[in-house]
């Protein structure tokens, strides 16, 4: 297992390096001066110019610049944003938690609703129910997320007026960021408006989370169902049935844990699509996360923000995919066996 982990770590480092290299090549081709593209300082003073030249080795060749760039970015210097003149790393730290909150909430929604529905679909004997569930998930899978987001906000926000359709919370609630998760921060805050603020934050997250959850939800239902059908036909389940075990027990103890392994694997594969969907959802619902931050950076030609956003999102996806793969291996004795065989 140790060697396996080391190899995964290698994979992580190699992929990240490749990604930074591509980012560097893109950066030197931005239609602006390099000093500005690297640092984001618009009108640098004489000392700042010197500092930028020595930091990024601007007086040397591209190869030197690449290593200087790498070491600056690795040490956490992402430059400053051209539009706000604040450190990009600091801005990133304020927008990332909001994105995590939305992603966690919709991921949870997808799993909590998707897994039981998938089990239900696999157990149900009625062709009609099965087909209905499959038809609904296929529809959900095919709906473009921007259309869904706009439709939901039109109906539940504008027409019916039930739910707010943009932002994280009504801005009159003054909530000090502690964890960065608005739902938790509202409860932690010591203002007298704690509960109304929590309710308000909850109301704000419903529509974006539902929009974002549709894709993973449909995938989870379909994968759970096919995995369950597969597992329920295995001899050990049939044996358990033959022993007279309660069906609920068979499903929860014997079938479901095995059926969830492919679900985990597919979640890992879905991360990239999920992240790009999250960016679209954040823009539609003005969610103050890394996605809308990155998109507004692109509109404003804020090159340091673009680099910082891409770096953060890409590193996260690489890291999480590898993490899920490791979890998959750890939880799945079969793949461990393959692993040992291959070693």
């Amino acid at each position: 297992m140790g060697i396996y982990l080391l190899r995964r770590l290698n994979l992580f480092i190699a992929t990240s390096l490749l990604m930074v290299t591509i980012l560097f090549i893109a950066t030197i081709h931005f239609p602006t001066e390099r000093a500005y593209a690297y640092s984001g300082i618009i009108n640098p003073s004489a000392e700042q110019v010197q500092q930028i030249i020595s930091d990024y080795q601007l007086d040397k060749s591209d190869v030197y610049q690449y290593f200087a760039y790498l070491s600056q970015r690795m040490s956490g210097n992402l430059g400053i944003s051209a539009t706000s003149q604040q450190s990009v790393a600091k801005e990133l730290a304020t927008v990332l938690p909001a994105s995590f909150e939305l992603a966690c909430f919709s991921g949870l929604l997808a799993l909590v609703l998707g897994v039981p529905l998938g089990v239900l679909a696999s157990l149900n004997q009625h062709k009609l129910t099965q087909n209905a569930i499959m038809a609904i998930t296929l529809t959900g899978y095919s709906i473009p997320v921007f259309w869904l987001g706009l439709t939901l906000s039109l109906w539940f926000g504008v027409r019916l007026g039930w739910l707010p359709i943009s932002g994280q919370i009504n801005l009159l609630y003054e909530i000090k960021p502690v964890t960065g998760f608005m739902l938790i921060d509202t409860l932690l805050s010591d203002s007298s408006y704690r509960l109304p603020a929590f309710k308000d934050a909850l109301a704000h997250i419903v529509l974006p989370a539902v929009t974002l959850a549709v894709l993973p939800f449909t995938v989870v239902v379909r994968i759970t169902r096919s995995a369950m059908l597969n597992v329920m036909n295995q001899t050990y389940v049939r044996a358990a049935e033959a022993r007279g075990l309660h069906t609920g027990k068979i499903i929860l103890r014997h079938a479901l844990p095995n059926a969830l392994i492919p679900v985990l694997k597919h979640l890992g594969l879905m991360l990239g699509a999920f992240a790009s969907y999250a960016i679209v959802v954040e823009v539609i619902f003005s969610w103050p996360g890394v996605g809308s931050w990155l998109v507004s950076g692109i509109y404003q030609r804020d090159y340091t923000v673009i680099q910082g956003g891409i770096l953060a999102v890409a590193l996260l996806i690489i890291f999480l995919s590898i993490l899920i793969e490791v979890l998959h291996t750890a939880s799945n004795p079969l793949s461990r066996k393959e692993l040992y065989a291959s070693n």
């Binding site: 929604l109 909590v112 609703l113 039981p116 529905l117 239900l120 007026g161 039930w162 739910l163 009504n170 009159l172 609630y173 003054e174 203002s191 408006y193 109304p196 309710k199 308000d200 909850l202 109301a203 419903v206």
Partner: peptide
């Protein structure tokens, strides 16, 4: 399952229609 699915919907509905207390 039905109850589970109704829970967030119900919650959202309550939040939306409940008396909202704002600073």
């Amino acid at each position: 399952l039905f109850r589970l699915a109704m829970l967030p919907l119900l919650g959202g509905w309550l939040v939306a229609c409940g008396h909202q207390q704002l600073p």
